Amino acid sequence: MATDSPTYTLTERTDLLGYVPYLLGFHPADSIVVLGLADRRICVAARTDLGRPRGVTVRQLSRLLAAAGRRRAAITSVMLVGYGPDPSAAQTTRDVADALDARGYHVREVLLHFGDRYRCLQCDDCTPPGGAPFDLSTTAAAAIATYEGLVAQPDRASVEQLVRPVGGLAAIAMTQAVDRAELRLTALLGDSAAALDQTDPDRPGTARQGEGTADERLVRAGTAAVDDALRIAAAGGRLDDDEAAWLTVLLLDLRCRDHAWQHSDAEPWQLDLWLDLTRRGEPALLAPMASLLAWCAWRSGQGVLAGAALRRALAADPAYSLAHLLTEALEQGVSPGSLGPWPAL
């Protein structure tokens, strides 16, 4: 993933090791992590499974480093960290480092992290043979990252669980709310006042339903629903089931989705909104919410969460274009900072 993290100086190896989980969003295990630097600044971090064939790993990491160099400043050096207690972890990490060096990347550091210890893989005397003791929680980097609001989940599976769907009574309640929302949408588009919920005339889509064409009413209702959702989320609130269902039904229209996209960025409350809706969404309606979650996560530098959201989006709709666009950005190592804010609307 590309990174636009807060700027501070990592002066010790332990600071580097303490910071990696916050760059990735989780604590890696059985992994190789490569950090690409432009001069002295980390501008890309990527992880791959330790057990993958070396050639596949090197090609993947090289593509990410090259893409980051094309889109940002050229990568001038790399650092690698292997994770795993298995003796083969050290040799695999060395092999990947040698292969990247052969491709022209200056390798500044190669470390192995195992348990509560680490050791250098470039020399035999700068760390003890059994490794130097290491407590991640006491590192300055971990303290600063926590202060900046960065979060490192216990493992990759924990990130995937963040986007898992709700179950039980909550899922049943949302299904019923979606049924009501679909009836409401049918009434809105058909301009049937009898089918609308007249007990709540302030709901978007019920007021002024007779104004304009069905298409105009749809866009107006979708815009209002998005604006209401963002206002509630910004104030620390949460959409009730009917509000959530109404919004998710309307977001199937790309114009309504794009209105939400243009008003979502890297604010934590925006990410919380789309995460909540992704978890509550009906499978057939999920692609827009999960893609908006991926957008906010990517803009926040949480590439792993963005990837998890995109997998849910594409499982719901394999052809969803926004999900494919964001997937390509992740795979190409596009930096979130390479895009400025949306133009003022």
Rank of each mutant, 00 (worst) to 15 (best):
G130E: 12
P288M: 06
E211G: 02
A90P: 00
L310K: 04
L61T: 04
L310V: 05
V178C: 10
L10C: 08
V219L: 15
A152N: 01
G149H: 06
I172E: 14
P165H: 02
H113C: 09
V20F: 12
R180P: 01
L17E: 13
I42R: 00
L136P: 12
R117M: 03
V159D: 00
V96R: 03
G307W: 02
S300G: 07
L239C: 14
S62K: 13
A313R: 05
A143H: 15
D253H: 13
T3Y: 02
C256V: 15
R108Q: 13
L247G: 00
A308C: 07
Y147V: 03
V56K: 11
A306F: 08
R279V: 09
A221W: 09
D240L: 03
V107Q: 09
P21G: 09
W295I: 03
G84R: 03
L285M: 13
V219S: 09
Y320M: 01
A66M: 07
R13N: 09
Q91K: 14
D125P: 00
A313Y: 03
D95H: 08
A245P: 14
L17P: 07
Y8D: 13
T9I: 10
A233W: 01
I172P: 07
Q262H: 12
V219F: 13
V96M: 04
S335Q: 02
G168C: 10
P341D: 06
R299H: 05
Q161R: 15
F114P: 03
A229R: 06
R312M: 02
P341Y: 01
T146C: 11
V56N: 11
A145Y: 07
P154L: 04
A29C: 03
V159R: 02
Q198G: 12
R164D: 14
R279H: 05
G333V: 04
D191H: 15
C43K: 07
A306M: 08
T92C: 14
V219Y: 12
A45Y: 07
P165F: 00
S335T: 11
T248W: 02
A68P: 03
C296E: 00
G301E: 01
R119I: 04
M174W: 01
A309L: 06
H106T: 15
T278K: 05
L345N: 11
D317R: 13
T9V: 15
A224K: 01
R184T: 08
L218D: 10
D101S: 15
L239E: 09
V166S: 00
Y22Q: 06
L188S: 03
T248P: 09
E182N: 12
S5T: 10
A313C: 10
C296L: 00
R203L: 12
L64Q: 07
P133V: 13
R208L: 13
V56S: 07
T93K: 01
T48A: 12
R54V: 15
R312E: 05
T213Q: 06
A97S: 06
P128G: 11
A315V: 00
S264G: 10
H324D: 05
D241S: 14
L112D: 05
A143N: 12
H27L: 12
L292T: 00
A315Y: 00
P21N: 02
G190P: 04
S264H: 08
G337E: 14
D86N: 11
R217N: 07
G18T: 01
G303Y: 08
T9W: 12
R231F: 11
L218K: 10
V249D: 09
Q176H: 15
L121H: 08
G301P: 04
V110D: 07
R311P: 02
S291E: 02
G115N: 08
W298G: 02
L189H: 07
L188P: 06
L23M: 10
